[in-house]
Design a binder for these strands. Sequence first.
DNA 1: GACAGTTTGATAGTAGTTATCGAATAATAG
DNA 2: CTATTATTCGATAACTACTATCAAACTGTC
Lengths: 146, 146
Amino acid sequence: MARTSRVESFRDLCERRGLAVTHQRQVIFETLTAMHGHPSPEAVYDLVKERIPSISLATVYKNLKTFEEHGLVQEVSPHHGSARFETNSAPHHHLVCLRCKAIVDVPADDIGPVRLRKRAPAGFRIQRYSVEMHGLCGDCAQQVES
Amino acid sequence: MARTSRVESFRDLCERRGLAVTHQRQVIFETLTAMHGHPSPEAVYDLVKERIPSISLATVYKNLKTFEEHGLVQEVSPHHGSARFETNSAPHHHLVCLRCKAIVDVPADDIGPVRLRKRAPAGFRIQRYSVEMHGLCGDCAQQVES
DNA sequence: GACAGTTTGATAGTAGTTATCGAATAATAG
DNA sequence: CTATTATTCGATAACTACTATCAAACTGTC
């Protein structure tokens, strides 16, 4: 059954990575995958608390981070810790280093045109867009290798 | 001279918008445009402080926000206030409402393929990318109109 | 220069997130 | 199954980024 196999694969995943399979960890993971949206840590916490009232917010944060490090979930926008401003008004895209948070501009011409094939849903009015490429910059790639 | 005309156009811009042209505001703007990267408010503050040692961090924040509201600068990624996680592992893109911070997934198929025409600079290793479209969702667009 | 409106600086407050550490739980060896 | 070790948990203090408040200073206008 779907539920059973999902739980088992989660168990396997943890074992392969040397992660302890705790009740909290399982519930957080199940809750998160059942949410299908882009929930914040607080939102996850609120739902998990219904099943484990004694859970700590810190536990939710720690596990979300762990899941991300192991590729089970992604952060929607690698959050730069603080806001970043730019004055480059020419159309361009971004390379963002996930490790050192460096941002590099890529001229729009270096990437083919982006076009939406369908209408944007529910009257959404697009003001601007950019292609955000996430990865490791040269320096960080080297450091990770060693 | 380039410098003079830049200052004058800033003055005009403020006048047109009913913004007072203060010394602080000018220095913050000049500093920001001279930085050409993606500086954080703190980084701007540190540099501005060299010219106006008595400036307050709050003033820098307030002016950056004002500049953004008037389209003089952009925030690189509209910062969701809190982290957001997703488990959707299928390739997809995002619509982000600048007002209510809602995030809507757009299947990769709804957008033509994105391809980099040149090599990524300086050994950057791209792990994933997505097209981030910013604007107003249907609800917010309506509310702004009135 | 006087008046009204705007902005500034200092600082307190808030939200989101992380660090710390003893207690509890899970994995592992016997 | 029990003992040992490693990991994780919960509570909470601490930290970072940011915003609100408000009197004093400044800007634009008459």
